[in-house]
Amino acid sequence: MAEKTDYELMAANLLKAELKRKGVTYAQLVEKLAEIEVEEREVNIRNKLSRGKFTAAFLLQCLTAIGTSSINL
């Protein structure tokens, strides 16, 4: 298994931090994504975040779904 790059790690940590800050679980994220017509399963989200491999579009969908309009890098 290839190691995560610094940017993959940063992206995964950024999304995890926003979820934690908003108090949103992976199960709740699945529901919130469904509300914006994005179909995901909890296990898929868990895997994406643990691997740190997901698209910028997925990151934006998640941030939109949880109501994040701005982030600090």
Rank of each mutant, 00 (worst) to 15 (best):
M1I: 15
A2V: 15
A2I: 15
E3K: 15
T5C: 11
D6M: 06
Y7W: 13
E8P: 01
L9Q: 11
L9V: 09
M10R: 06
A11H: 02
N13W: 00
N13G: 09
L15D: 00
K16E: 02
K16W: 00
A17R: 03
A17C: 03
E18N: 02
L19G: 01
R21W: 00
R21G: 05
R21D: 01
V24A: 04
V24Y: 02
V24D: 03
T25Y: 02
T25W: 02
Y26H: 12
Q28V: 03
L29R: 05
L29Q: 01
E31T: 10
E31A: 11
E31Q: 05
E31N: 08
L33S: 02
I36M: 07
I36E: 04
E37N: 11
V38D: 00
E39R: 08
E40V: 08
R41D: 13
E42D: 03
E42L: 11
V43M: 14
K48C: 07
L49V: 12
L49C: 10
L49H: 04
S50I: 09
R51Q: 12
G52V: 07
G52P: 01
G52R: 04
K53E: 09
K53L: 08
K53N: 13
F54D: 04
F54Y: 14
T55C: 04
A57Q: 13
F58E: 07
L59G: 11
L59C: 14
Q61H: 11
C62F: 01
C62V: 10
T64G: 08
T64L: 10
A65L: 10
I66E: 04
T68I: 10
S69W: 15
S70I: 09
S70D: 15
